[in-house]
């Protein structure tokens, strides 16, 4: 899309701002106890404000109310959507995006505000408009535009009971990693990223799998080194063997990796550089300790643990 084409396209989509998706449409069902109860049953909701007439009669409200999160439920189109929805301003906007390659769709934000509680017997009408469309953005999904619909909910007296803003990203899809399901259809639980094992370091990881942390030692000058590499940095000898670490150590430096959270890893893991008693440093996790209680110089003791189905790693505990 060149600049002129983009301008023409944007003119076309921005013309949708303010367009009515649904005019004021009363709900097919008045607010009623049965639908409230069915909703609560599935959602595991036990709030007596929705379910218990006797309790509600004595409460500040004096009667039961509909769960606020049902606000959008009352006006839903119903089973007919299984065979498609009638064209409206929103579907026309989506179609315009699709025609220009913005075929990806992602709901990104939904905000409901509630101004009034709703009692049994009321009727909730919904009106929806296309409220705004962003400028072109480069997103992690690809280039695209955010559009936001604004639904306004009114009761039988015409009072606004709430609003909903729903933001959708329409984007040109880029290559995305496929969602994984294993052959038997079960979801695979993610594990930590596998260590890369090559000629020069595979032996070290194989030892970890066997429950040991080894330290490479030059057989010419006895200097220890880590991470593993072919040549001694002191005497350039390529002859080496290894010793097993006792995993007694001291924290040289540490941080907490809060963002981004990576699937397969614990939340807010503490990562530390640990000076082992033998003299080499090891980057590892400190566990069994709150981040607030970490300190440089604290003594730690390591043990090789199976941290997930596929991964063994040394983990350090306060000594």
């Amino acid at each position: 899309m060149n600049e002129a084409e983009q301008q023409a396209f944007e003119q076309e989509i921005y013309a949708f701002v303010g367009e009515v998706v649904y005019p004021v449409t009363p709900a097919p069902d008045d607010v009623n106890e049965s639908m409230i109860r069915h909703w609560c049953e599935v959602l595991g909701e036990t709030n007596p404000a929705y379910l218990d007439q006797d309790w509600a009669a004595d409460s500040a409200r004096g009667h039961i109310i509909a769960p606020p999160a049902m606000m959008y439920v009352w006006g839903q189109e119903g089973f007919q959507v299984t065979t498609g929805r009638a064209a409206n301003a929103q579907s026309n906007l989506v179609e315009t995006f699709n025609r220009h390659g913005f075929t990806g769709v992602l709901g990104t934000n939904v905000k409901q505000e509630y101004f009034r509680e709703v009692g049994v017997g009321d009727n909730i009408a919904v009106q929806m408009v296309i409220d705004n469309i962003s400028e072109r953005k480069m997103t992690s999904r690809g280039p695209g535009y955010f559009f936001e619909t604004l639904a306004t909910f009114t009761n039988r007296d015409g009072e606004t009971v709430g609003t909903q803003r729903f933001k959708v990203l329409k984007f040109i899809p880029q290559e995305q990693p496929a969602a994984a399901a294993s052959d038997d259809g079960k979801l695979e639980t993610p594990t930590r990223i596998a260590s890369v094992r090559g000629h020069d370091n595979g032996w070290w990881w194989d030892a970890v799998d066997a429950g040991k942390v080894l330290i490479q030692r030059c057989t010419s000058c006895q200097t220890l080194r880590h991470p593993p590499r072919p040549m001694c940095h002191e005497c350039q000898s390529m002859e080496w063997d290894s010793i097993e670490s006792t995993l007694d150590g001291e924290v040289l430096s540490f941080t907490c990796v809060r963002h981004p959270q990576v699937p397969g890893y614990p939340k807010d893991p503490i990562c530390a550089v640990i000076r082992l008693a033998e003299g080499t440093n090891l980057v590892s996790n400190v566990v069994g300790c709150e981040f607030e209680d970490m300190a440089i110089g604290m003594k730690v003791k390591g043990v090789v643990e199976q941290v997930d189905e596929k991964t063994a790693l040394p983990q350090f505990y306060p000594a």
């Binding site: 909703w39 599935v42 959602l43 595991g44 909701e45 036990t46 709030n47 007596p48 404000a49 309790w55 409460s59 500040a60 769960p67 606020p68 999160a69 049902m70 959008y72 439920v73 992602l106 709901g107 990104t108 934000n109 939904v110 905000k111 409901q112 505000e113 509630y114 509680e117």
Partner: peptide, 30 residues
């Protein structure tokens, strides 16, 4: 669906607060 997620989240909040609390808004990033 989003409506179920919203329902679970408001339930979580009011299970904590108790039933006289009035839900004013729920603003979620999906």
């Amino acid at each position: 669906n989003i409506l179920t997620s919203q329902g679970l989240m408001t339930r979580y909040a009011t299970d904590w607060s108790g039933p006289e609390a009035v839900v004013r808004s729920i603003d979620l990033k999906l």
